[in-house]
Amino acid sequence: MSADAKLDTGKAAAAPERLIVSPSPHLRSKDTTASIMMWVAIALLPGVAVSFYYFGLEAVRTMVIAVVSCLAFEFVGMKLLGTAGSLKDMSALVTGILLGMNLPPTAPWWMVAAGGLIAMVVAKHLFGGLGSNVFNPALTARVFLLIAWPVQMTTWLKPGTTGLVTAEGLQAVTGATPLAIIKEGGVGALSGTGAIDMLMGNVGGSLGEVSAAALLLGGILLLAKRIITWEIPVFFIGTTALVTGIAWMANPAQYASPLTHVLTGGLMLGAIFMATDMVTSPISFGGRVVFAVGCGLLTGLIRLFGGYPEGVSFAILLMNAATPLIDHLMVPKTFGTPRKAEVAK
């Protein structure tokens, strides 16, 4: 009974000298972290393309710097801190694209690079690298930049600008985001912008704040490929619509309609691509529902009553912080365990 299994069958191949042994299961799903990240990157492409279309070379420049700096700082973070991760897992690429999507097209190069540093080194690798970060890296960077350089982070390019813009020429081509217009001047001030403009992306904003339709397209792809599950986008957007809808019904003169809220700002980007970040959202279905409802509630409240016109980033980061608690509290009853009511009987 040796480990060598030789079969003298004459006609057929003998068993190899050594068979590989390994514990079951002997099949693996084809999805890997890298393939999931690749699909997220692909799903972001329509949104990226629309931002390039409306904001021209400025958007291209910002996106390239964001991606390159994230890849570079991922490498630096891993080397410096010896933490988990690999450029091959493509997560830094996704963070890079998401960072670019979260910046205004005219963001100065050094600011974008600083965003890459914050995202990869501070938000990701100081927490332990891939899988260990509490906060979404791209959003952490966005909020850091928003607080550090508020002017540059809220200077918006008018859609339709194609070339690069000099610092001096910037004043002539700026436009505000729809949410900022509403915050400043009420719903009436937005009268020039229709739902179609917002859907297609013909409005001012960050690269990823413009076209709801392109982002939805990516979201459908992610759902179809089962990269994300439906509950976070649906409950996030649904709750935001509900909260802003209540305000709108109470006072339509002051508050924008839920449709406007759903189609503008970072909601689509946040709900489809950022709140669904595997690492920083809960692991169970119930947990994800609670998480998404929390995101929607906070987004609605910040937009309606907060000092900032947009609340998606803050909402997601706050719920990121709550995720360990949600995971801790929302442990499902195991199979066959009676529910509380039955135990009481």
């Binding site: 390994s22 002997h26 099949l27 693996r28 799903s29 999805d31 890997t32 972290t33 999931i36 988990a84 991760g85 690999s86 897992d89 997560s91 690298g129 891939l130 899988g131 260990s132 595997m278 690492v279 959202s281 809960p282 692991i283 169970s284 994800r288």
Partner: peptide, 14 residues
């Protein structure tokens, strides 16, 4: 199956 190296958990919940 392909002999994979185990990578870091990304808490995807799958």
């Amino acid at each position: 199956p392909v002999d994979y190296e185990a990578a870091a958990c990304v808490r995807c919940g799958r």
